[in-house]
């Protein structure tokens, strides 16, 4: 018999995989599931890390459509100084 896998647990499992998988070790990625769509949100420091996060998510939730909305942090010029 098929056992229903509640989305709540799938999302938690994906988030944990992204944090603990050696390819990513990325904390703070938000995982939302709607039906068979999986949404990833958050920030990473390198463009290829964005792709690895989606890869690990896809492996942890086979059959789901992964929407990678993670963005890569833009590092701007130092800018104004603040006087304390």
């Amino acid at each position: 018999m098929d056992i229903w896998d509640p989305p709540h647990y799938v999302a938690a499992r994906v988030q944990r995989a992204i944090a603990e998988d050696e390819r990513t070790n990325e904390l703070g990625i938000r995982v939302d599931i709607r039906g068979d769509h999986l949404f990833l949100q958050g920030q990473v420091c390198e463009e290829d890390q964005r792709e690895r996060v989606a890869q690990v998510a896809a492996e942890a939730a086979p059959g789901m459509v992964v929407h990678n909305e993670v963005i890569c942090v833009a590092v701007g010029e130092p800018g104004e100084q603040e006087v304390l």
Binding site: Q43, C45, V73, G76, P78, Q81, E82, V83, L84
Partner: peptide, 19 residues
């Protein structure tokens, strides 16, 4: 934290007027 700053580094001045 770099994602909070969005810039290479912040600069804080202690002990005087703005340069």
């Amino acid at each position: 934290a770099l994602p909070v700053l969005g810039r290479a580094y912040a600069i804080y001045c202690l002990g005087g007027e703005e340069l």
